[in-house]
Design a protein around this nucleic acid. Sequence first.
DNA 1: TAGAGCCTGGACAACGTTGTCAACTCTGGG
DNA 2: CCCAGAGTTGACAACGTTGTCCAGGCTCTA
Lengths: 344, 344
Amino acid sequence: MVEKSPQQRYGTRPTMKDVAARAGVGLKTVSRVVNGEPGVTPDTERRVRDAITALGFRRNDSARILRKGRTASIGLVLEDLADPFYAPLNRAVEEVARAHGALLINGSSAEDAERERELALAFCARRVDGLIVIPAGSDHRYLEPEIAAGVATVFVDRPAGLLDADVVLSDSFGGAREGVAHLVAHGHRRIGFLGDQPHIHTATERLRGYRAAMADAGLPVDDAWVSLGTTAPERVRREAERMLGGPRPVTALFAGNNRVTVTVVRVLATARRPVALVGFDDFELADLLSPGVTVVAQDAARLGRTAAERLFRRLDGVLEPPRRVELPTRLVVRGSGELPPAEG
Amino acid sequence: MVEKSPQQRYGTRPTMKDVAARAGVGLKTVSRVVNGEPGVTPDTERRVRDAITALGFRRNDSARILRKGRTASIGLVLEDLADPFYAPLNRAVEEVARAHGALLINGSSAEDAERERELALAFCARRVDGLIVIPAGSDHRYLEPEIAAGVATVFVDRPAGLLDADVVLSDSFGGAREGVAHLVAHGHRRIGFLGDQPHIHTATERLRGYRAAMADAGLPVDDAWVSLGTTAPERVRREAERMLGGPRPVTALFAGNNRVTVTVVRVLATARRPVALVGFDDFELADLLSPGVTVVAQDAARLGRTAAERLFRRLDGVLEPPRRVELPTRLVVRGSGELPPAEG
DNA sequence: TAGAGCCTGGACAACGTTGTCAACTCTGGG
DNA sequence: CCCAGAGTTGACAACGTTGTCCAGGCTCTA
């Protein structure tokens, strides 16, 4: 079906001009057919369509975008495309975008502020209509010119730094507080907290929730029971083993996110005595482990959907001050949080 | 830092022309500064940079792409952004693209041929330099004009339909054969096969591997032991329960992919007697279940990396006939496949 | 001091599309 | 038979960038 005339070099695409020439019509008529605009006789349309098929023409969206100004695409900067927590968020954003006829461009910041910036600005150079960002950095003023220029921007999972913008997050503080309270309710007094790096908003919020729950119960918190840092398995393992050893070992652990929880589960699988565990974030198969892992679940897909919907409402021209939306978490009780503290 | 002159309406971006006017230089000089081209005195450069900052200018990549022809971006069509099997593949492709200075655009086909087509063609309209596709449909001739026009195209995980193109896959046949042989070696004679839909290449390949292993051992295969269809939990559960019941129940199951395996694990968790299981695809925490789930592991990240590298080699101008790369699988023994057949 | 050669800067066209607007054809009524 | 009006069609400019090419000013040498 696709002809290759000698003069049409490999790698050179036919344009509307070529189609017009072949169909014996004007350039604008081709444009009309391609865009389904009215005012073309069926006969002409057929001739144009034949030429399009014969030449293998496809409209060049770059030119179209340049002319029209809108790209019908949005950008999503997240931490890691492969993280099972962000994957559903990503997919949810994609679905909302699709429903609005927009394409999604995304990228992983790898928890690196500079890389987040590069990605976000690259998306802006592509003239995305809107931007959804899961912040890695703590200063987002670099986006000010973009926002001023009309790029709708919504932050998810963590608030923007030094910038007043829409944000959608989970109730990290409340969720952690509830999770830790659950451990307290089952008799635990020495509870460890293993969280993500301290510059990450959710990490400190969850730590705050932990401290609040301990304070609520009138329990002291030993510095040795708290550890923030990377979620690298080696570090988490080392810290967990430290908290579980020594003269005053913890009898329960609260894990600050899904990555940490998984590593802690592995550590506990080889522990001498049962240790209670509650983790932030739900994960697949948590119910099939023995005991099932009690978690503070947040709905990642809903986070993504909410953020994307907010973005498109902005794109539809809704003008209102930036809003902070906080979604509730849900304690899912499965057994690991109900273990009583071993005598120590 | 960003000035808003009255005539600069909200939503209107400054262009190089504006920057040039403000800096009191020519248009091309701005272009030179923005692109780091030589031939600009330090003083002029500084004036231009000041103007850029003051106006909040950002180059419009659509115009740039239109002019240059290359977009420095590639498209990835996969089945589901949120599928834990494809997520690492996605990430691996992203990393390779990043290393080559390219942006990644991706989308979920949701296992729908029409949607796959829409996405792939939308990417082509955006003039991606290359395309990586995990096929959902079985006829990819619609890509012929694009390939002829120079869009490098590599298929992953499943071969293209009716099109001669590069493809990178796992050894589904060999992997399944090895997995089923493992069950046979542990004394199983009645082994069930639960796989994905029959129009999916990997599903039938794995079934073929199952039949080969059974034939190798001289074992008959009862039609009732084989079930292909959607990976929806309800269907898998129903079929698994059917195979486990009746007068001649299976004593072991081979699960055709990660989604199926997970559902089967849930079914077996409530089974009256132990049933052996081997699954295709590794998954997180498989080792922590009891018993640990023996799997035929494939390296999704390596699939993605290999495909992306092949793509960029094509983009670098390597001309050679399309190649089929088959990556080996690895049997990971964890216990669930070693259960002996219960007396029945 | 004049000429050659280099360095810097800018005018202009082109990329492929769409919006504007004017011109053309055809129909039907007066 | 002519004209109004509706329905088609196409010429042209513009979107913002980059490649080409030329002009002007400078330095260096003879």
